[in-house]
Design a protein around this nucleic acid. Structure first.
Lengths: 194, 194
DNA sequence: AACATATGTTACTGACCGGTAACACCCTGT
DNA sequence: ACAGGGTGTTACCGGTCAGTAACATATGTT
């Protein structure tokens, strides 16, 4: 009866996913074991395996959750600046930069792609779909903002944000990844003039 | 006496490093074991441990070798277009794109950074040094080429190539990573006009 | 009270992996 | 012929990890 009640402790499944996301991010997918995840979530391995068929299944679930959070972020841009795609684009730049720096470990999705070397891993479909969706939204925004060569700008910004994330991970705050916002705004401006 | 003789089989140490680089790239640093590496190199684990203090030591050696090959590539640009930094820059774009696509697994150095979540890992020094050195060379080239805002262009190109590598790994030939050459040349041109 | 469902506990298996020990082998230079 | 260094072979240790079995406990529903 109190299953969804506010203030009560979340159910094991949700606690597992939350902790798994944090620990996967911190230690890598192969760097943390299911036992440690379950313990950190205040439960145990058996309960974990009652909710997830395998560790890979848990990984896929975590990546899907990243996806839905990203969806929510995009809806936020539209809500904050309705009918002002250029302002939405600048919002995206700022928020993307914040996410890239978060906990110094770059993009969960890209990290997963780097770690899951087997192309047949079920997570690969999620990764590919996420990246394509992300790029489509960005392209639509660039187009709506009325810049010349919207597709080219979207490609450029896609690579810049991906590069910023991975660069930050390698060299930290002294590298070009830390200057992503300035770089992106310069690029957007140069496309707007053209 | 025949130690360095052409045509003879390379020594175990060299075979190990060569195979290790290939297998690390293919399966990830944590995805392949020292036993498998030794066997693939036509030798055994004991001999491997006579040449390398640990698996981490082997990893560092492999990353250093990537570094020296990259150094050679840069010397090639200078040799091919002496006193023509702009031509060298375009050569860099082309060659960097080729490397990014090689075997579809992006940049060994960036992948290592993604997988080695422990910041105290000895390989992290190599990674950081490599990226900084890479960026310095690019900045010098941009400056010598006489473009306006050389630093900004170098930052932009750094992020673009890193982004292209990781994007290719996630979405393959359909994504913006595959259009890196066109994107970069458009950026260079827009900086040259400014 | 009785039942069903979700969860906790403990113990276990089988596999893999990093690293080491001991010993035999082969080639080379003297 | 001899010695010594590099190499091959086998076996082993200790640890970790994904996944499962069996049983006990709690909680909510009827």
């Amino acid at each position: 009866m109190l299953k969804g009640c506010e203030g009560s402790r979340p159910r094991p499944r949700d606690r597992i996913v939350e902790m798994a996301r944090q620990l996967f991010r911190q230690y890598g997918l192969r760097g943390i074991g299911v036992d440690a995840i379950a313990e950190a979530a205040g439960t145990n391995k058996m309960t974990l395996y009652r909710h997830f068929a395998s560790k890979d299944d848990l990984i896929v679930t975590c990546l899907r959750e990243v996806e839905t959070e990203t969806d929510a972020m995009w809806e936020g841009f539209e809500a904050a600046h309705p009918n002002d795609p250029m302002a939405q684009l600048h919002d995206w730049v700022r928020r993307a930069a914040e996410c890239a720096v978060a906990e110094g470990r770059g993009c969960d999705i890209a990290n997963a792609a780097a770690e899951l070397t087997d192309c047949n891993h079920p997570a690969h479909k999620v990764i590919e779909q996420f990246k394509k969706h992300q790029h489509e939204r960005l392209a639509k925004l660039c187009h709506d903002a009325g810049v010349g060569q919207a597709e080219l700008l979207a490609d450029t910004l896609s690579l810049l944000i991906e590069g910023a994330r991975v660069n930050w991970q390698s060299v930290g705050p002294d590298g070009p990844g830390a200057r992503f916002v300035g770089i992106s705004e310069a690029v957007i401006e140069s496309f707007s003039k053209a």
